[in-house]
Design a protein around this nucleic acid. Sequence first.
DNA 1: CATAATGTTCAATTTATACTGAACAAGTCG
DNA 2: CGACTTGTTCAGTATAAATTGAACATTATG
Lengths: 165, 165
Amino acid sequence: MNQVLEKKEVLSEVEREVIELFIRMADVLNLPRSVGEIYGLLFISADPFCLDDCRIRLNISKGSTSQGLKILRSFGAIRTVYIPGDRKDHYVAETSLRKMASGFAGEQIQPHVHNGKDRIVRIRELLDAHENDDRDVLEEKIDLLENWQKRASKMLPLILKLIGN
Amino acid sequence: MNQVLEKKEVLSEVEREVIELFIRMADVLNLPRSVGEIYGLLFISADPFCLDDCRIRLNISKGSTSQGLKILRSFGAIRTVYIPGDRKDHYVAETSLRKMASGFAGEQIQPHVHNGKDRIVRIRELLDAHENDDRDVLEEKIDLLENWQKRASKMLPLILKLIGN
DNA sequence: CATAATGTTCAATTTATACTGAACAAGTCG
DNA sequence: CGACTTGTTCAGTATAAATTGAACATTATG
């Protein structure tokens, strides 16, 4: 019976609009569309949804839904709620901007920043090793790069502070 | 003769590394790879380069180069320098983080924020028009959305201030 | 233990995006 | 003016990324 009814669960216009808003946000943040869809659905819904609820209402695949939930979990944009007597995981949207932003920063931004730092070190090594005609000019550029890098590192926590609660 | 020599201009290891760094940055910022390549090349080079200089050294197409320079110009990441007796435009990388960030914010972020604001207004209209069973809950969610939107709007200039010079 | 429920993984596919290069202005020079 | 230089545009193509769906692992349940 459940299988037959799957298609019936349909989104209201408001729900569709909200989800579209989050699709755009996901795009800006370089996240898959499906992540935006899922978060949007959970955000606008009153009750916790399980994987299949999301899959059916958004009409996306099991794989996408699983991946999307995983990503959302990874930076704390959703959390699970326990529902007695149900084996499935149920999710609700986290609504603390602070939490999500810091999760996102830690998961999706920090790695890049860190990677960049490593790369600059590597570049400096290359520069020191090689005998180069215009080393001074290059050296200055790398200094500038490093300066940016350091500023970026200091900015991140500061921005999170700014966001407040 | 120029055509024959085109291929000779080759990138040093340091140049290649720096360019790769900017390719990564471009990726984080959701910009085409070629934009990162071009900026990286201009950043690390001592002299102004014209479109063809970039194209040849990076071994990318004319179209990509033209588009890439256009994007970089659009948010002030590069500027032209006049070279007497040369009809071509010559570019150098802008190195003021402040300038670039505010250009980027204005060109690539603000439109999305603005678009989001419009969308929220639309959603509120929908909600007011429609007779809905759980309007109160939805209303609350939209309030929250609007709150985020407003905070984001206020944050942008604040962050630019933080960046400093 | 066999069956079912739930979620994950991943190769194949689809979709979105960027890149290419040739055609096309627009301007310059002799 | 006619040939050349320079840069833009855009249809076609290539590339990267997300999605699908079926196979799989894991755990529960009778």
